[in-house]
């Protein structure tokens, strides 16, 4: 077998009994649309992005969506199977708990001041905001409001930025907290 040694710059010849070739891989067609449907990120080649390469290798940016196998990066069968077991275990962990635990950075909307323009609803990348009605205990309609579903919210804060009345706020990164930080900076 003949090739080039990139370090020395010269040709290399190896006599071998067996040659094993690794074929290149690329993600399947249509993976971008699928990823967008699930709100999962992907890199320039179309491989789906995990949350963190070392600490969260099978979770994604969307809670509840897990990835494994060659959709995430080229890998062989034993690696794919191992990763699949990891993803399945993560699902079981989620389902076996009596409560869904989430990161506390969740948006909340002040329903007294919300003007129900629903700009936040359109902007939310996770469709985590819905229209809700506020009624008196007797059922008389009072007003409409936007409301965050805390199970879906991932805490990006886009709703806060687009809200004209700043009725939406992000726990952990509230307007008060950010303003205090900025004021003490200079």
């Amino acid at each position: 077998m003949r090739g080039a040694d990139t370090l020395s710059g010269g040709p290399v010849t190896i006599e071998a009994d067996m040659v094993v070739l690794a074929a290149a891989m690329r993600p399947a067609d249509g993976v971008e649309q699928l990823a967008q449907k699930f709100n999962v990120g992907y890199d320039e080649y179309g491989f789906l992005l995990e949350s963190h390469p070392k600490l969260r290798p099978v979770e994604t940016a969307s809670a509840g969506v897990y990835i494994c196998g060659a959709c995430q990066a080229p890998k062989d069968i034993p690696e794919s199977v191992a990763q699949a077991s990891a993803a399945a275990s993560k699902v079981l962990i989620t389902f076996s708990a009596s409560e869904l635990t989430r990161e506390p950075e969740i948006a909340k909307i002040n329903e007294d001041t919300c003007a129900a323009c629903f700009t936040c609803l359109h902007a939310c990348p996770y469709h985590a905001i819905e229209q809700a009605e506020i009624r008196t205990p007797r059922g008389v309609f009072v007003k409409r409001t936007a409301r965050v579903n805390p199970g879906l919210c991932m805490g990006c804060g886009t709703c806060v930025a687009v809200c004209p009345s700043k009725s939406a706020d992000l726990e952990g990164f509230t307007e008060q907290e950010i303003y205090s930080m900025v004021e003490s900076l200079v």
């Binding site: 990006c156 886009t158 990164f173 200079v186």
Partner: peptide
């Protein structure tokens, strides 16, 4: 001086 935010989407003009 750095202010860390979860996402640039969180940044409104008033900041």
């Amino acid at each position: 001086r750095i202010i860390r935010l979860p996402c640039t989407g969180r940044i409104d003009f008033n900041l």
